[in-house]
């Protein structure tokens, strides 16, 4: 029987999930961005790249419903050189590709690390999906869930795995709150009730410096993760 490889299970198949790669180098921190359609995931990714690209080596994997739409947006915006952006095709089901069958995403992440050299950060963006879409822990280290105020101020109260368990909840487009009659303080209270101590960032990504709360959180996560794995 060859089934008793207990010592290296389950790292064998998700060997890329280990912080230290087979060649002894440390792999990139992986952060997933999910959330409903149109809340600003791609804009957040673009803003994060712009904010962090001078200090960190970054790559992006997109998971689109339609092939390449998000990847092409990022290319057009020129937030990163094209070789640092990879599109995974999802067969109309992005949530499957980031949660149930992560094989294509793992390959995309590994290929980016192999092809563009050591990376500090890989952002894995999910195509717009529903409130239940979350990333597999086999794929990402942390996940950000992006909602916006125009989706209604009851979304944090409704909860769902994305809102409840994401490592960071981003409530985007706060500048629109007065126009759509949304009570931001109520949203914050509901989010607190759903998420306990997990952080929530109220942002307006498209405003100057709007991504700051998110990029600061990413920097903290990266610093902590690096320290943890340097010690290991």
């Amino acid at each position: 029987m060859h089934l008793d490889h207990g010592n290296d299970f389950p790292e064998r198949h998700t060997h890329s999930a280990e912080a230290i790669r087979p060649d002894g180098t440390r792999r990139a921190l992986r952060i997933g961005l999910g959330g409903p359609v149109g809340t600003g995931k791609t804009a957040t990714v673009a803003a994060l790249c712009r904010a962090l690209r001078d200090e960190l080596s970054i790559a992006v994997v997109t998971n689109d419903i339609y092939t390449r739409e998000d990847a092409e947006f990022l290319l057009r915006e020129a937030v990163l050189p094209p070789e640092r952006i990879s599109a995974v095709e999802t067969g109309a089901c992005p949530h499957t590709a980031i949660r149930d069958d992560i094989s294509a995403n793992l390959e995309a992440v590994e290929d980016l690390e192999d092809q563009v050299g050591p990376l500090d950060l890989v952002l894995v963006e999910s195509g717009g999906d529903n409130l239940t879409a979350t990333f597999s822990r086999g794929l990402v280290d942390f996940q950000i869930f992006v909602i916006d105020v125009s989706g209604g101020d009851d979304i944090p109260r409704k909860g769902g795995p994305g809102v409840t368990t994401a490592d960071l909840l981003v409530v985007n487009k706060t500048d629109l709150a007065p126009y759509v009659g949304v009570d931001l303080e109520g949203m914050a209270r509901d989010a607190k009730a759903q998420r306990g101590d997990l952080p929530v960032a109220f942002t307006s990504i498209k405003a100057e410096g709007g991504v700051r709360p998110v990029s600061d959180w990413v920097r903290e996560r990266l610093a902590a993760w690096t320290a943890e794995n340097a010690a290991a």
Binding site: F9, R12, H13, S103, E107
Partner: peptide, 18 residues
């Protein structure tokens, strides 16, 4: 080949074999 690589990842997790 792409699917073969993905199948390989899943297969090695499920049924490790030399």
């Amino acid at each position: 080949r792409r699917l073969g690589r993905q199948m390989m990842r899943a297969a090695r997790a499920a049924w490790p074999s030399p």
